[in-house]
Design a protein around this nucleic acid. Structure first.
Lengths: 171, 171
DNA sequence: GATGCATAATATCAGTCCGATATATAAATG
DNA sequence: CATTTATATATCGGACTGATATTATGCATC
């Protein structure tokens, strides 16, 4: 991220919460230690800007060595793409749940997707133009996958509810 | 998983590599400590079956308390669904990569998806009938999302390659 | 005028997770 | 005959992360 310009940990967090949120979340507990370690390795430099009231702003900037390191890292031919879904894990055992409980879970998932869709629209409206094709590709990927998930859930939730109703009918 | 019947850590691993692979991967480093901890808490019981040549098979079985605990856990109204994609992270910076490098990454991702699709087909052919609706829902979810990803990548890879070609043309 | 909440900003830490590695044998494959 | 795959368990260092702490401003609400 620093390759696109200077930023503080706080600035980066905002990016992780918006454009990166759908595929790579990171909290302060990951960001600050990462910045410290990068600085130690000389891959970024740090400039402290004093402020009144607030902690000093630490603005990080990528170094020439950091840029070389980034380019090397981008040579990985098979980067991973992992999903870790408690949601799907739960749905495997929907037949052990109350039907209302299944409904709640499904709706909360649809809400999350809705929130992502709004975020995508915001991003598209604001900063899309100034982005390289890669960012457009990644945003589009998020939109396509979100849409597919939403469609699938709406069209197939009956699979889950039939089962729980069968159970509650036989109970 | 043990709610569906007794199993050893090794058995569970096979499930994590097949039906669960697309949304919840787990290695031995997670499975064995988890089983030990569950046994300590009395949520599962363990029966050691001696074998010649191989280490003793430890077959775990869920207890009544374990079942109660599972049902409580299934009451979580908003289970999470996370994606962590080095692939998409790299694609954000495609403009810094060689076009051939981008091609390689894209193809390796498509290969992964292809492997999943084959796995889905296998599962559907073999053990689909004996499954509850929840498992069918989850498998279908994986298929739908995989198909959407494949389609999106094929239809939009030009977004990534245009950029790198522009770069290599101006270099 | 006070209370509370959001924003700005950094930082740490305990607990969890996981990839890599180790060990031992049988069976299948080339 | 050699090598790979399958059976089976186990550990550990390093990475990751959610929760928590600190301090101050500004803005809305009661």
């Amino acid at each position: 991220m620093l390759n696109d310009g200077k930023a503080s940990g706080y600035d980066l967090k905002k990016q992780f919460e918006s454009s990166f949120a759908h595929f790579f979340a990171a909290g302060f507990g990951s960001i600050y230690p990462a910045l410290s370690s990068l600085a130690e390795q000389g891959l970024v430099s740090c400039q402290e800007i004093p402020q009144q009231g607030k902690p000093d702003r630490k603005v990080y900037e990528i170094t020439a060595e950091g840029r070389r390191y980034l380019l090397k890292a981008l040579e990985n031919p098979a980067p991973c793409h992992k999903v870790r879904s408690e949601f799907l894990a739960m749905m495997c055992f929907a037949h052990l749940m109350q039907p209302e409980s299944v409904e709640t879970v499904l709706n909360s998932r649809l809400d999350d997707i809705e929130r992502f869709k709004k975020m995508f629209a915001d991003i598209e409206a604001n900063c899309m133009h100034e982005w390289p094709g890669g960012m457009k590709f990644v945003l589009g990927f998020g939109k396509a996958v979100s849409a597919a998930m939403e469609k699938y859930i709406c069209e197939n939730r009956y699979l889950l509810l039939e089962e729980t109703q069968k159970q509650s009918a036989s109970a």
